[in-house]
Amino acid sequence: MFGVIVPGKMVQTELVQISENQIVCNIPDHENVHHIVVFLTGQTPIPDNYGAAIYLSWPGSGSEQSWTLLGHVTNEKPSAMFKISGVKPKESGNGMNSVAMSSTCAQLGIAIESAAEIYNQTPASNTVPSNLANFQEFSFKMCENLFNYISSFSIKREQIHFAASETFVPMSALQGWYKNFLRKIDNDPNFWKS
C-alpha cells in the first residue's frame, strides 16, 4: 500500500506490519537524511474516511520509544515529502505503539487513522519542506515586473513637465534597488523577515 523514499537510497515498499493498522520501516544512516517521501503505491487504497498518519522515531530516545508526527497522506493527497533534519521526538502519547528497534536506525511509522483524527493533529514544526525555490522565483518575477512597469513611464529630462504634486525618482535609483534586492535574496532568501 505504501512506499518510502529516502533520497539516495532504494525505494522501500516492503514495510513491517506491527498491528492491524500500523506499519514501520527502518531509516538507516538517519544522521544524513534530511527529507523523507511517503506515497501510496496505488495497489490498495486507504479505506474511505481514513488516512495514514506518518510518524518518526529517533534512536536513543530512552527505554520508551516516542514518536513525532510528521504529517499524513490520504487517497486525495497520495504523497508527501517531509523535512526531518532537526526534528527530534517529544514525549507524547500518540497513535504509534512502541516496537523494538535498532539503536542505530531511526524508524518511520505509518498508522491508519480516521480522517477526523488526522486533520485534528498538528505535525511537528518545520517538517514540511519550504517552497523556497517557488518564493525566490516569485520574488524575481515580482521585482522584474515592477522594474518593467516603472521603466515604461521613463522619459527624458527635456520631456519632463513638472507638476507640483508629483515626485520624480531617477531610474538609476530603481536599478540600484533591484540589483540590491537580487543580491540579498541570493544570499538569504528570508532576509525580508528580519
Rank of each mutant, 00 (worst) to 15 (best):
S98V: 06
N126R: 11
N120A: 15
F138M: 09
W67Q: 02
Y119H: 14
N94V: 08
S114G: 02
G71K: 05
E137Y: 13
N120Q: 14
S102V: 00
Y55N: 05
C105L: 01
S125N: 12
S98W: 00
G71V: 04
Y55A: 03
Y119C: 13
D48Q: 15
M96L: 05
M96Y: 00
G86V: 12
G62T: 08
Y55G: 00
K83R: 13
S92T: 15
S63I: 09
M101T: 11
T68L: 07
A80F: 02
V128F: 12
D48G: 11
A52C: 13
L70N: 03
K83T: 06
E117C: 11
G62L: 03
A111C: 10
E137C: 15
T68R: 03
S103F: 05
S102D: 08
P123I: 03
F82H: 00
A80C: 09
I112S: 04
S92D: 14
G93C: 12
S130L: 08
Q107C: 07
N126Y: 10
T127A: 07
S130K: 10
A52F: 02
T104F: 03
V73R: 01
M96I: 07
M81R: 08
A106Q: 05
S61V: 15
I112E: 01
E64L: 07
N75Q: 00
V73M: 03
A133C: 08
Q107T: 09
Q65H: 03
A53Q: 14
F82Q: 01
K83I: 03
G109R: 07
E64W: 05
P123K: 08
K77I: 11
P129H: 07
Y50T: 12
Y119G: 10
M96T: 01
E91H: 12
S139F: 13
Y50M: 13
S92Q: 15
P129I: 08
A124S: 15
E76N: 04
K88N: 12
A111Y: 02
S66I: 13
G93T: 14
E76H: 03
L70Y: 00
S79N: 14
T68W: 04
A100H: 08
P123S: 05
S61Y: 13
N134T: 02
V73T: 04
M101P: 03
P78N: 02
K83D: 06
H72W: 11
H72G: 06
N94W: 06
G71R: 02
I118V: 14
